[in-house]
Design a protein around this nucleic acid. Structure first.
Lengths: 220, 220, 220, 220
DNA sequence: TATGAATGAGTATTCATTCAT
DNA sequence: CATGAATGAATACTCATTCAT
């Protein structure tokens, strides 16, 4: 909480041991920020509490670094993949959403989701914004652009709202992942995960697709 | 040393002061479970710490009761409203989703969402399940039933998956609410709330609706 | 701890309910002074905490009164009994010690013993002295007088130390009672209680009795 | 909420600072268990409260360890001393009882006695049993064996009950110690401590000793 | 008389943080 | 680099005591 002056050796401090960062992420994400005792992080990493203070400034700093360390924005990769595709927008959208869904199913994502909506989000808003930008927002932006493309080439209805459509598709899948997979709702309200994805995307794409019962006029 | 036996008045304990429950909910939801000091709850309710221990067993019990107290499930009311409606399924769905969206927009819901995905979910899984059952699960169950109704009367496509459709519609709106309204994303990625709802529901209903299979025009 | 001024109605306060005093004694003696919660005393007596404060000044006062209430000095009775006896001193001693042993075997005595040697003795020395005077000291005084009588009439050796003999006989039985009966040592180091008394008194009386191997000269 | 798992160093935890154990014993014995504030123990040992929790599990653990630490049973030493003696049983008994009396006179013993009959006895029965076994029970066992020896070699009467005799001799001295020395009875009913011991042991040994059955003279 | 509700001072316990070695 | 020992501020919880009714 209170910033103590950086220790004398701060400058030449070498890259902090990955083990510590990974242990920290695991424990923070499992227990929550407050409930995490540094002792447990240290134990998990096979060192002692003191070692944490050699590498990091304190608990808060540890969380920050641990989260940064986990941040490999998947979307860079996705965009690259998309650029090479020559396919209808709906196909590309399916591709993007599938990647996203795979990502969401990953325990790491579940942990981060909990962490972000738990205390960390409130106590460190900057962290939350960082995550939101690189995660959900980026996710629905990609989808939005693909929808716009689909509208432009007549594949999708001109009336659709690409922004909102992207948001809801991505949000829907994300929250379903968080609930079913990472919050143990699978046994309270079971539902096959593939079915969620497949039926969900079908519905979404169908919702976007041109279906007017008067023949749509080609754009002049 | 050993937990003292429940105080004499345990059985016939009268309804504990609502003020305390409401203050507790407010503070827990704002600060998170761990970060909440009982003293603050007491202050907020205009009593002292001791009073809390007169009415509740401890911090955990207080949280539990506070959440239960908030649980006047909105769905009972919604179902009643629906029963009186004589309208197409799509209209009813719009109605339900609107109610849900209004609920989601409420700060209370945002707080609960955070609490549930934060510490409470990990430390008190039973609470999480209770919330999930009375909240999200019930939400998408209602929608699922309406979709099934729509499918039966030919309003919706026979191919739709009512379960998944319900889940995604409800989840999408919920997470959008959590992000835009309760996590400050409105200024990072602004979007009009009415637009999210309206465009979103249009898209959703359109996705469900029977396609009068006109040949789709090839892109020119 | 801090003496608040006696409440206004102190003067006409009627005799406090026996139930309260008895419950108090039971709980204090079982749990110890500190560990006793007034709530438990109240419960045990079938009233509520507040009632205690109507009748007593506080926890300390309650203890004091509870102990006073239990105080039936048994020795007055014993002395009366003795006065009517025309028997050798050794017989009278046996009688006295038997009464004492019976008293010691009583749970009430065990409780008081614990209470006195526990915290109460340290925190309220006056109480301890009162108990000691009416209990152990009076006990060994009676025995001492009987020994002196026995020495005077040649039944016991002139060399015995009546004071010390009385003290040790009484103390020995008391501590054996406290340990075997009231501290659960009976199953750790079992010993028949009658045997302790009978063998013990035999040994004691034999120790007092004239056994010189030169014939003792009658006092001139 | 839940007791945290024993800290990482639990297994190889080195001998906890003696200073802490000794301070703890002092304060516990003086004030009683409940009335002892850990802060006072810490102060007495020249550390802070936190240090206690580094070395011990809590208040109860501290008491347990402190008592164990005090338990360098004196009887081992006594037995060794006895083994080297070639003397009549009565002499050996005097020796043992003198050691015991010296021990009983020690303030430490008085404190422990109070502690044992006070809260510790009720709240931690196991501790009480440990103390009883290594203290009183062991004490009277040693004496019992010496009496048996004396009986075997004709020094003591064949009719004596060594078990009971041992119990009463030891108990008598112990309680006299507790009362006179450690409970301030010396000024209420003064008695020279040496006299208690000397007259007491004389009486005891005389009680055990073979009577050269001269006819006892009738009182004149 | 007695009670239910509340108070508040006291205390055990936790844990991030420091630091000599 | 890392550790073991210690600190001390923060905080949940207990319970004697008060008092309006």
């Amino acid at each position: 909480m209170n910033k103590r002056p950086r220790p004398a050796h701060a400058g030449e401090r070498p890259s902090p041991p990955e083990a510590l960062l990974e242990a920290a992420f695991r424990v923070f994400a499992t227990r929550g920020y407050r409930a995490t005792r540094l002792e447990e992080v240290a134990e998990e990493a096979g060192v002692t509490k003191g070692a944490i203070y050699y590498h990091f400034e304190g608990k808060e700093d540890l969380l920050r670094q641990a989260l940064k360390h986990r941040h490999r924005a998947i979307f860079g990769e996705i965009e690259r993949e998309l650029a090479q595709q020559r396919a209808p927008a709906s196909t590309k959208i399916r591709l993007v959403l599938r990647r996203l869904w795979q990502h969401v199913l990953n325990p790491t994502w579940g942990h981060t989701f909990r962490l972000m909506f738990g205390e960390a989000g409130v106590e460190f808003p900057a962290l939350f914004r960082m995550w939101a930008e690189e995660g959900p927002i980026q996710g629905w932006s990609v989808v939005r652009r693909l929808i716009e493309e689909g509208v432009r080439n007549g594949e999708f209805q001109p009336g659709v709202d690409p922004e909102v459509a992207g948001r809801l598709a991505v949000s829907g899948l994300m929250l379903q992942g968080a609930l079913q997979v990472h919050s143990g709702l699978q046994d309270l309200a079971p539902c096959d995960l593939d079915r969620i994805f497949d039926s969900g995307v079908d519905l979404f794409v169908h919702g976007l697709t041109v279906t007017h019962n008067q023949p749509r006029m080609p754009t002049p």
